[in-house]
Each structure stands twice: as C-alpha cells, then as structure tokens.
Amino acid sequence: MKRAVKVTVNGKAYAHEVEPRLLLVHYIRDMLGLTGTHVGCDTSNCGACTILINGRAVKSCTLLAVQAEGASIQTVEGLATDGKLHPIQEGFWEEHGLQCGFCTPGMMLTAVDLLQRNPDPTEEQIRMGIEGNLCRCTGYQHIVNSIQHAARKMRGAAGRATPR
C-alpha cells in the first residue's frame, strides 16, 4: 500500500505516493529525475549518495523516502544558485578535486556540512571529516585542497577571514 510523502528538494515542493520500502536515493533519482545523487554501495560505506537534509549531510541510501516526510533536502543540483557555482564546486574545479566524478556530489555535500560546522578546518580535520565518503580516483589529496580552497573562499565571503 502506497504512502504519501511531501518533501522540498532544492527549494521545490514535491508530493508523491510511494511504496513504503522505497529508498530515499531511489526516490530522488528515479521519481524526481535528479540523477546527480549516486549509488555506490549497499552498506552505507561509500557516501556517493550523500545529500543535505535540513542542512545536515545524510546518506540517502540509509533512509526510506517516507522517512523524509516534511524535510528540506539539498542535492548537488541545488548547489549552484542563479548559474553561479557554490564555493565548494569552485574548489573542486580549481584544485582538480575529481577525476571520474562519481563520488564528487556526495563528497561536496559532506564538505559543505563540514565547513558549516567548522569554517577553518585543519588538514587532519578535513581528512577525518570526509571519512564517510570514499573516492577511488584522486588519492584524496586534491579533495583536501579543494575543501581548503572552498573554506578560504567561504570565510572571505562571510567577512571573517580568520588568520591561520
């Protein structure tokens, strides 16, 4: 028996009838057509499906769509606003933070959450902060650089450039 679910994704309201067992990631990909959110595993290890739910990074393969009822969700498609890239996107582009790009959306959204909580992380804090997201291409070093790049940019934009 299908259940009703209402969510806001990237600022747009959606309402659907879904099977209770439908995973949130499949709802986002198959029903909303937002395929920037990827599926890389079935054990919640890889983090390719990471999205922001009410501002916090969550692996969307670990939730049922019905559990997201009433939530405000942000996916990679909602990162850029008015055609302008988010600083985390700029960071990944500038610092070659991606190769095949498959882990990238989840990695960037985890980084956004990390930088919201800690605007000036050390390298070690970044490396620990993204431990829920796996990348097989980059060796992580350019991802660390990308997040540092975004952190500098976001602190600058917030007008509180903290001396390192």
């Binding site: 395929t35 990162l79 850029a80 990944f92 991606l98 959306p105």
Partner: peptide
C-alpha cells in the same frame, strides 16, 4: 583546470544508470 568538470560538479553528467 579540467574542461570535463562543470558537468560533473553540477550533477549534470549522465552515467549509464542515470539513463531513462
């Protein structure tokens, strides 16, 4: 900078499972 990146960082790339 890589020219393939804009589609990848905005979620606009099409991997096989994304095809409809």
């Amino acid at each position: 900078k890589r020219r393939e990146d804009p589609r990848l960082i905005t979620g606009r790339a099409t991997y096989t499972d994304d095809m409809q």
